[in-house]
Design a protein around this nucleic acid. Structure first.
Length: 270
DNA sequence: CTACGTACCTGCCAGC
DNA sequence: TGCTGGCAGGTACGTA
């Protein structure tokens, strides 16, 4: 499901409801996720107050007085604010209930997501090898140019590699490359610094616009208030195989790169 | 480093 | 109508 904009939209949606709130009870109906939820996670969280919700890559980090919960939404996960009297539906695997009668519900049909607990986020194995945040000032053409040297992989795989830059998934990789006019198959090491500059701007633009629109809803992603994200209407290539390019009217092509479907315009991207 | 495959899951859709 | 295969927004890991 979610790429960076959807995770960020989720963070923005739930923060006002739960930052500063004390966790009264944690209900876990299903522990089998990407990693099994540890047996005493309820005990770790109950009674603690949520100090802040941060995001690193596509991970949401719930800092408490002592220790943090880390949530990843995988392909199909979402988080929603509920009243603690709302009965669970299928795949509503975890509830965090607060003192004020509200709760946070984790729903994830495919269970590729995760819910982990750590005393120290900065030393957690998930965060050790991550690349830069695309919306930070560290993400520049100079950085990409440095990392790109002699790399022969297609540029699309390169920008989807979380060791290089985090948060860019299959939708926004295709979209960013379209706006930058770069063919997704182009060998990374053969792209000029000038073109990297354009690519960096495109990525930041696409991600920021998608956050403003509340993310992209294709099937089962919904914002925390239950509404869909509206960025789908701004997609230029993703999911548009055979449809006319919004710029040149020629048909959008679809190929596979790194076992992932990839969309681009043969006429606009070189 | 690269390419490729495996694994973890459920749901949906097209085609027969 | 029902079955089957393929595909889906992610990512860690293993092998050559």
């Amino acid at each position: 499901m979610p790429e960076l904009p959807e995770v960020e939209t989720t963070r923005l949606g739930i923060s006002p409801w739960i930052v500063g709130k004390k966790i009264k009870k944690v209900i876990i109906r299903e522990r089998r996720f990407r990693w099994k939820i540890q047996d005493d996670l309820e005990k770790k969280l109950e009674g603690k107050k949520i100090q802040s919700i941060k995001r690193r890559a596509k991970y949401l980090i719930f800092d408490t007085d002592y220790g943090s919960a880390i949530i990843h939404l995988g392909m199909s996960g979402n988080l929603r604010i509920i009243k603690d009297t709302e009965s669970p539906n299928k795949h509503d695997h975890v509830d965090f209930l607060f003192n004020n009668g509200m709760g946070l519900r984790l729903h994830d049909p495919r269970r590729f997501g995760s819910l982990l607990w750590t005393k120290d986020v900065s030393s957690h194995f998930l965060f050790l090898k991550l690349g830069v945040e695309p919306l930070s000032k560290d993400f520049t053409e100079t950085y990409l140019n440095l990392k790109a040297k002699k790399r022969r992989i297609p540029i699309k795989q390169f920008i989807m590699n979380a060791h290089i830059v985090v948060g860019i998934g299959n939708i926004y990789a295709s979209e960013s490359l379209f706006h930058a006019g770069i063919n997704p198959k182009t060998q990374t090491g053969r792209i000029s610094k000038k073109r990297f500059s354009i690519l960096v701007k495109s990525i930041k633009n696409v991600l920021e616009s998608a956050i403003k629109a509340g993310g992209t809803t294709l099937r089962n992603y919904y914002k925390t208030d239950g509404d869909p994200g509206y960025f789908k209407q701004y997609l230029y290539v993703y999911g548009r195989k055979g449809k006319p390019c919004h710029i040149c009217k020629r048909k959008i092509s679809s190929i596979t790169i790194g076992q992932r479907s990839t969309f681009y315009c043969k006429n606009c991207q070189h």
